[in-house]
Amino acid sequence: AEDPGRGFLPTPGAITLFDPPAGPGVRLDSGVVTGSSVPGVFDSLMAKLIVTGENRQQVLQRARRALKEFKIEGVATVLPFHRAALESDDFAGKDRFNVHTRWIETDFAAMPHAMERPVQAEDPSIQRTYLEIDGKRVSVGLPTVLLSALGKVGTVSPIGSDSAAVQKDGEIAAPVSGTLQSFKVEDGQSVSEGDLLAVMEAMKMETQIIATKSGKIRLLVKEGDYLQAGAALMSID
């Protein structure tokens, strides 16, 4: 459950579809199904796809088919990267096998685009309460999501979708759902573009938050808070 287009950032969340491949030479080891949840406190591994065959060419053909049929929705996955890697000349070995430990960083040129973050489903339930209108007590039904939002006025709310659509100018958003491990700056401190501002932790991986511009920092959350991807961490004025 990692997004190759965002530097393999982990993406915890709910799996809305888990449809694995099958067939000759295809084996799957997994501990998740449709409806499972990938938490942010464990490793991001969801499944291992193992493909065998009589020779390497047959294995590549079977692996390409299996990866094409494999469907996981609800969280970002490394499936697009695996599909692209198996189509590369370096991996397929038309001349020779040219994959090495720095291959992704130095030679691999077909990295998939960042995947769209899933929008959190709204709660359709209704809560009944009472209002006084013109001196009369009236029973009304209000959406739970509305009451929840009213209860959070003045606080920072998690953003379920990609923060680019709603992020205010100067705000620094969480790039991944996880725990804010530490701030590297203090409230009111002046910073320069490129400075390290904070470190988040998700699925045993640390992600650095870097200043996108110069200015004065205003902290919006606390160390130790668990935040959804896109939630505002701080602002730079």
Results as ranks from 00 to 15, higher is better:
R218V: 09
L150M: 15
S177Y: 00
A211Y: 10
A85S: 09
G5A: 06
L219N: 01
K136G: 00
A149M: 13
A14Y: 05
A173H: 06
G188F: 03
L227D: 03
M46V: 14
D134I: 03
K213V: 03
S88W: 12
Q127C: 07
V221T: 09
D89T: 07
K94G: 04
E201I: 11
M111A: 01
P80S: 04
V78S: 15
G31K: 07
D123N: 12
P124D: 05
R83A: 03
K204T: 00
H113M: 12
A232E: 04
F183W: 15
D29Y: 12
A66I: 10
L220T: 06
V138Y: 06
D225Q: 04
V145R: 13
Q228Y: 08
E132Q: 15
S37M: 11
R102D: 13
L180I: 09
E201N: 07
L60R: 13
K213S: 12
F8R: 13
P24I: 05
V140N: 05
D90S: 08
L233C: 01
A229I: 07
A109F: 04
I50S: 10
A173F: 02
E186P: 00
G141H: 04
L131D: 01
V191G: 07
K204A: 02
D95C: 08
I236V: 11
S235N: 02
